[in-house]
């Protein structure tokens, strides 16, 4: 299962709720404002680092770069993908959008 989160974790609880329901073997994709949850040095960093022990987390690079961030700002272990990578993830899994 692929969970997608497009909201900043500082604005809504979508990311936290998503992580509550994500399970081993699932994947989580952070895109749009959701990418703010993938960055180093935030209040959420330890939550993300812990989650990475159980499942894969991806971040959409065009959304990262559009917002003045770089891959180097993303927490180690979070995997970068482009739109083609997003399509691959969606092809591999049923998708649940945490709107």
């Amino acid at each position: 299962m692929l969970h997608t989160v497009n909201k900043s974790p500082f604005q809504t609880n979508s990311l936290e709720t998503c992580l509550r329901f994500a399970r081993a073997s699932h994947s989580v994709l952070l895109f749009e404002d959701g990418i703010y949850g993938a960055l180093k040095g935030t209040r959420l960093e330890s939550l993300i680092t812990d989650s990475l022990k159980s499942y894969s987390i991806y971040v959409l690079v065009p959304d990262v770069e559009a917002r003045g961030m770089r891959i180097g700002d993303v927490i180690d272990g979070v995997k970068p993908v482009d739109y083609a990578g997003f399509v691959d993830l969606a092809a591999e899994n049923t998708v649940q959008a945490w709107l």
């Binding site: 299962m1 509550r20 329901f21 399970r23 049923t94 998708v95 649940q96 959008a97 945490w98 709107l99």
Partner: peptide
């Protein structure tokens, strides 16, 4: 609880969120 709900989600073919 969340484990029951997570299991339910895993069994779905189509998840519609609004």
């Amino acid at each position: 609880n969340q484990d029951e709900l997570a299991l339910l989600m895993e069994q779905q073919d189509v998840v519609l969120s609004f």
